[in-house]
């Protein structure tokens, strides 16, 4: 070892270290700045997203509530005239039509959808895998196509005519895949141990499915069904081609009926300001329907979680 080496040498790395510290501090400052800017942009994005949506709800309440009165709910519509431009009547025909359509559609879609969903969950046959692809593809199909199908099949081929039946058929085709998919998921969610417990007790497989699996999956299935109904209630496109927008109250499946969304569509471009104003009320009722159904579905879903735990 060189003795001279023991003497304190001038620290040549000092400047280098200072340089490194400076650059790293700068880099860090830049990274923090970029991060702040981007997070601010995200905050801007959520504001941008909220504005039209909040505006929509505000507008709906502000313009919808004044229109709602007993006439609105209980009277059939009438055409305004020059002498009485505000005589729009009510929309009882559309309320009854919407209820009738969704009830008939549910009657058609729920049994088929639920049973098909159970089959999807409990079978690994070829049919099941085909059906799974089919139902997932159908779930994404544009709703106007269900209208075309109902027109082509019910009206052109079966000659049944424009009716609640044709409209609810279109809605049923729309609801089927939604119900089947959600049923499949909730049946699959039933713990395997429950099935095995049933088997261990010597129960027959179909007994296990009906008495153990189904009751456990029930709240999930109900949630799916409610969501499917709430989607069907709001749809305009599938029904507009086939229900002919009847002006009278009717529960009969073979009568032409109207529906709330269809009435909005027809009246939004009306030359009568009173009819245009009325559409806000219809929209509010429609949104209220859908929200109540969705919230009910959520409550059912949370019940399911409690049972699961």
């Amino acid at each position: 070892m060189n003795v001279a080496g023991l003497a304190p040498t001038p620290d040549t790395g000092h400047e280098l270290r200072a340089e490194i510290r400076r650059t790293s501090q700068n880099a860090r400052a830049r990274r923090v700045l970029v991060s702040r800017v981007m997070m601010t942009l995200c905050a801007v994005a959520i504001t941008l997203a909220a504005v039209p949506l909040v505006m929509l709800i505000f507008e709906l309440l502000q313009k919808g509530i004044p229109v709602l009165d007993t006439t609105f709910f209980l009277k059939e519509p009438q055409s305004p005239t020059l002498l009485s431009p505000n005589a729009t009547g009510g929309v009882s025909n559309a309320i009854i039509g919407t209820l009738a359509l969704s009830i008939y559609a549910s009657i058609m879609a729920i049994p088929v959808g639920v049973l098909a969903g159970i089959y999807l969950a409990e079978s690994d046959s070829k049919l099941a895998s085909v059906l799974r692809i089919v139902s997932q593809t159908m779930a994404g199909a544009p709703s106007i196509l269900m209208g075309l199908f109902a027109f082509s099949f019910i009206i052109q081929d079966l000659h049944i005519g424009f009716s609640a039946l044709a409209g609810s058929f279109a809605l049923a085709v729309l609801m089927l895949p939604v119900i089947a998919i959600s049923t499949e998921i909730s049946v699959r969610n039933v713990p395997q141990t429950l099935r095995e417990a049933g088997l261990a007790l010597g129960a027959k497989p179909h007994k296990i499915s009906l008495k153990v699996v189904l009751p456990t999956a029930l709240s999930g299935i109900v949630t799916g069904v409610i969501l499917a109904i709430s989607r069907a209630i709001g749809e305009t496109a599938p029904v507009m081609l086939v229900i002919a927008g009847g002006y009278t109250d009717s529960w009969k499946p073979l009568d032409p009926v109207s529906a709330l969304p269809l009435t909005i569509f027809m009246n939004a471009k009306s030359e009568w300001p009173s009819l245009r104003a009325q559409t806000w009320g219809i929209a509010l009722v429609l949104v209220a329907f859908v929200f109540v159904l969705s919230l009910t579905a959520r409550i059912w879903a949370s019940r399911k979680q409690k049972v699961g735990n």
Partner: peptide
């Protein structure tokens, strides 16, 4: 293990029939 399809009960056939109906509707669509 699949509880519904391992036996040839009426329930099994009901499920298959309904699934065929669903497939048929989609093909018809």
């Amino acid at each position: 293990f699949s509880s519904a399809t391992s036996s040839r009960s009426w329930y099994h056939y009901l499920l298959i029939a309904v699934s065929l109906l669903f497939t048929l509707v989609s093909v018809g669509f």
